[in-house]
Amino acid sequence: MTDTRIDRRMAKLKAESRPALVTYFMGGDPDFDTSLSIMRALPQAGADIIELGMPFSDPMADGPAIQAAGLRALKGGQTLKKTLAMAAAFRKTDDDTPIVLMGYYNPIYIYGVERFLADAKTSGIDGLIVVDLPPEMDEELCIPAIRAGINFIRLATPTTDDKRLPTVLKNTSGFVYYVSMTGITGSALADTDRVAAAVTRIKGHTDLPVCVGFGVKSAEQARTIGACADGVVVGTAIVNAVADVVGAKGEITADPVGAVTTLVSGLAEGVRAARLAAAE
C-alpha cells in the first residue's frame, strides 16, 4: 500500500462513507492564468481529487470536446513544463487535494522520464494516468513512477475481462479508473446496472477504490454512479463549461471560474447524496 495524498483522501472519504468527486480539466485551457484560477476553485466547489489534463496534439482516445480543449491550451502556449508549474502554483495554497496528471505518453517521453518524475514530485503531483501505456509497456513509466512514489492509475474498461483484470491491476495504485463504456471521452453514459456489476467485478480482484468515468454530466448521474462506486469522474462536462465561455477567437465571454464552480457544486451535491440514496 502506498501512502500518497490520494490514498489519504480516499481513506478519509471511506470513513465519511461517501464517494469521491474526481474532476478533470484541461491544463492551460484557454490560457495558463484562467486555468490556474479554475484549478484553485475546484476544491472549494466540492472536488475531492483533481485530474489535470496535459494537452496533446493527437489525443486518440478523446472525443471532440477534450480534443478541442487540448488544442485551445496548446494555442494558448501550454507545455508540459507549464502544466507542472501550474500544479506547483496550486500547491502553494492547497497541500491536501490530490493531483493526478492525465494525458498521453509522448510529451513525457520527450521531456525525459526521470526528469519528468523528479519535477512532478517537486510540483506536488500524486498520480499519473497515461492513456496509451497499457501494462505491457510498464517498464516505460509505470515502474519508474512507483519507485518515485507516484501512483500509476490504470484504466479498466468493459473489454477488460476477468482473465485480463489481474494484469491491469498488478501495478495499479491510488485507485482504479473504470471507464464505463468502450469509446472516446464525452460519449453517452452506459447503463447504471451494468456499471454497478462491473464495479463489483473489479472489486472482486482488488482492495483499491474504484472510480467510474466516461459520460457523467449531471448531478443526477453523479448521484446514481456514486451509489455504486468509490468515486465519480467528471471530465467532458467541465471542459464544456469552459468552452461555453470562450469565443471563436479565444476571447473569454463570461466568467469561466464561475461556470465551472456552478457545475462542480451541483455535481458535488449529487455525489454527496449518493450514499443516502443507496441507503433508502
Binding site: 486518440m60 482516445a61 505518453y105 492513456v131 496509451d132 501505456l133 497499457p134 501494462p135 505491457e136 509497456m137 490504470r154 484504466l155 479498466a156 474498461t157 468493459p158 473489454t159 477488460t160 475481462d161 485480463r164 491491469v168 471507464v179 468502450t182 469509446g183
Partner: peptide, 20 residues
C-alpha cells in the same frame, strides 16, 4: 515478442484496445 524492433515498435494503445 513484445513487438519491438530495438527501441522501436511496441503496443502504446488505450486499455480498451489491448484485448483486441
Amino acid at each position: 515478442e513484445q513487438g519491438m524492433f530495438g527501441i522501436f515498435g511496441g503496443r502504446f494503445v488505450a486499455e480498451t484496445l489491448m484485448p483486441l
